[in-house]
Amino acid sequence: MGLIGDLSIQITQMLVVLLLSPLLTGFVRVVKARLLRRRGPPLLQPYRDLIKLARKEAIVADGASWLFRAAPYLIFAATWVAAALVPTFATGLLFSWSADLIVITALLGSARFFLALAGMDVGTSFGGLGSSREMMFATLAEPALIMIVFTLALIAGSTQLSTVAGFMLSPEVGLRVSLGMALIGLVIVAIAENARIPVDNPATHLELTMVHEAMVLEYSGRHLAMIELSSQLKLLLYVSLIACVFVPWGLAPVDAGFSAHLVGVAAYVGKLAAAGILLALFETTVAKMRVFRVPDFLGVALMLGLLATLLRFVSRGL
């Protein structure tokens, strides 16, 4: 297809993740509400919220520095770049070679770094509380993710996500113990990183248990819109990551035709819907953990990642 085709896929991908991410969040909310026998908000409510927030004036606390105002854009940019590099409906992303899986992990780390700093900028106790707990979770979630990345890289022989996804599509993968461990670990990390139950409650407010919401408590208006959009993008990113590695069927391979891409898009929307239903189901069936139980939960992910990597070191088959 050449450069134009690759470029158009890359740009479509960037727009797809940006436009679909509020929809995924809205969908999860709707399903959760239905499971609780509530009617729930309309499916498109997140878009309306974002537009409403963006149009309002931003209220900035006295004494907040420029970092507080710049952070939402930096967080959004890092998350968007990371999300645009995870294959959603096609593997042949034009810029896939510029950032591999380790870079994507680190980009999410950058977003978290600035979010935690922004939480501390106004100088309230809630902000510091959120930042401190977020960084504590991150100290376990990030190594767990790196170990999972190691496992995938050792199976596929590459840290390039497009190559990994292409390899997972090929028949030589088969069922492996290490892949199963990596899947469970990745799901745990995804739940923790996206502040979902049982680690954090996305619907909570004014509770001492909150983590993510405490960090962004001082944000309002367009800044809050950027932060909300970033967290929606992050949820979509993790779902896409799990989908493209563990359920890659339907992904349009490199140099595929237009119809293959259409199939890819349809399959992707189907995967998102399935993930949304599973997430909502999971969230309604478990209770939130105490903060100091979360390290145990994340420790499981780290251990699974380490074991999976170890298996890849000692055996080619497992």
Binding site: A54, E57, I59, A61, A77, W80, V81, S98, G123, L217
Partner: peptide, 28 residues
């Protein structure tokens, strides 16, 4: 990529949504 998408987002928001800012005491 990071710089351009941050600038793009900031420009789009300030141009098409709102650029107003108000200082107020912390909410907490």
């Amino acid at each position: 990529f990071i710089v351009s998408s941050a600038l793009l987002a900031a420009y789009a928001i300030h141009r098409f949504a709102s650029a107003a800012i108000r200082r107020a005491p912390a909410w907490d």
